[in-house]
């Protein structure tokens, strides 16, 4: 038969539901027979309820924005590809997906892959997703993006080349490039990834056209495994 000391030793777990069934039975049996422990349990519930009823004030309305703004000035954060599995939902996405693959031992040190053309409507922004499958984590890889005339990356008006250093996690890493068509033209977007002595480059033919948006003209899908883009319509 459990005594008060043993019961109190398990009271925290009893309250949080972290006891095994046999221990719950033993505690409940003791509780039924012990008015003192009934009182102790009731006090603990009262304490908990009272503490929870003490309101924690809300922050000043502007605090979060100020705090985040301050953080932005505190120094650079590491840019991240967001790792994500590419699955069946891919074909349903409106975004364009370009597949990179860099599997040591199965790929040459430098590679190049041509993709079919992508059509971007003039004066619209379209997100191109680069996916990179890394068999091993890559720390400090350098990514270069070179844009054709008539295409700008949102936030970088007039810049043809953008590059930065980043880390890649093992598996599929995704990177979104928000591209805006500013002039009717066509050309090649080059994405080059370098890590140590190795590098790989992929190219995408971009066509900027004045399109009457009827939905179908701007929907693309990726043919799995072949890195080919085709118009859905």
């Amino acid at each position: 038969m459990m005594n008060c000391q043993e019961f109190l030793g398990q009271l925290d777990e009893y309250m949080t539901g972290e006891l095994e069934p046999h221990a719950i039975d033993a505690a409940s049996t003791h509780l039924r027979a012990c008015p003192n422990c009934q009182r102790r349990l009731a006090r603990r519930h009262e304490l908990r309820a009272s503490l929870r009823s003490q309101a924690a004030p809300a922050p000043r309305p502007e605090f979060f924005e100020q705090a985040l703004s301050h953080v932005r000035q505190s120094g650079p954060a590491r840019f991240s590809f967001r790792p994500r599995l590419v699955g069946a939902a891919l074909a349903a996405s409106l975004a364009l997906w370009i597949g990179f693959s860099w599997l040591p031992g199965t790929q040459p040190q430098s590679g190049s892959d041509k993709l079919a053309g992508i059509i971007i409507a003039l004066h619209e922004t379209q997100t191109v997703q680069l996916s990179f499958n890394a068999e091993q984590p890559l720390v400090g890889a350098m990514l270069h993006i070179r844009l054709p005339n008539g295409i700008e990356m949102r936030g970088f008006p007039g810049q043809r080349e953008v590059q930065w250093r980043t880390d890649l996690e093992r598996g599929v890493n995704l990177l979104s490039l928000p591209l805006t068509a500013v002039a009717t033209s066509e050309g090649v977007l080059r994405a080059r990834l370098e890590h140590g002595a190795r590098s790989t480059e992929f190219t995408v033919q971009l066509h900027v056209r004045e399109l009457v948006t009827n939905g179908a003209d701007t929907v693309h899908s990726l043919t799995a495994g072949r890195h080919e883009l085709k118009r859905a319509a």
Binding site: A58, P59, F64, A67, L68, V71, R72, P76, A77, R78, F79, S80, R82, M153, G155, F156, V162, W164, R165, T166, S176
Partner: peptide, 20 residues
């Protein structure tokens, strides 16, 4: 840089739901 802006946006998105 584009990377820094991306990182900021990502950071905001990650922490904002928990700030309150």
């Amino acid at each position: 840089s584009f990377a820094a802006r991306r990182a900021q946006a990502q950071f905001d998105q990650l922490v904002r739901p928990h700030l309150d």
